[in-house]
Design a protein around this nucleic acid. Structure first.
Length: 152
DNA sequence: GCCAACGTTGGC
DNA sequence: GCCAACGTTGGC
């Protein structure tokens, strides 16, 4: 099993929004970054565990856990001209952008804040705490996953 | 709202 | 293929 971290701006889509979705499941659409795309298309497997992370907000950090319930498939928003995520270079016969479905498992007992993660020497290798990191989907090592859960 | 970091685009 | 301009991310 693999572990991941996915960022979302709670103004756009929060952990509570995920809870309120039918089946507590949502497709992770709108990602327009090739590294993140490649991970969703090629590497994320059903049953993989995901940290749900709130970015660009007052209370930044890990807020919950979800799991992958559907592996990479084309992001339909790229085909819809009216949508902000429309990309004319992606077409249904040769899709450029992919997404996965994730299902809510639980909230963490508290928000595990970015500052706390940054200050933890055990997590120094995480892309999340590296300067200038902009990946919205990133892998988490098993060691880092377990360590973060121990902070709860 | 600001702005540093960094990915993408496109002219050459 | 280089690289300047531009757009976006995301912490602060």
């Amino acid at each position: 099993m693999n572990y991941w971290l996915m960022k979302s701006e709670p103004n756009e889509f929060s952990i509570d929004d995920l809870i309120n979705m039918p089946e507590q499941t949502e497709h992770w659409d709108g990602v327009r970054n090739y590294q993140a795309r490649n991970m969703m298309r090629d590497q994320m497997k059903t049953g993989d565990q995901v940290f749900f992370y709130h970015s660009n907000c007052k209370d930044i950090g890990i807020v919950g856990i979800a799991e992958v319930v559907r592996e990479g498939y084309p992001d339909h928003l790229a085909f819809e001209p009216e949508d902000p995520h429309y990309d004319p270079k992606s077409d249904p016969d040769n899709p450029r952008w992919f997404m996965v479905d994730i299902r809510f498992i639980r909230k963490t007992k508290r928000t595990i804040g970015l500052q706390e993660l940054k200050q933890d020497s055990a997590l120094a290798d995480m892309p999340l705490v590296r300067k200038g990191n902009r990946l919205s989907v990133m892998p988490v090592s098993e060691q880092a996953w377990k360590h973060i859960l121990s902070l709860e």
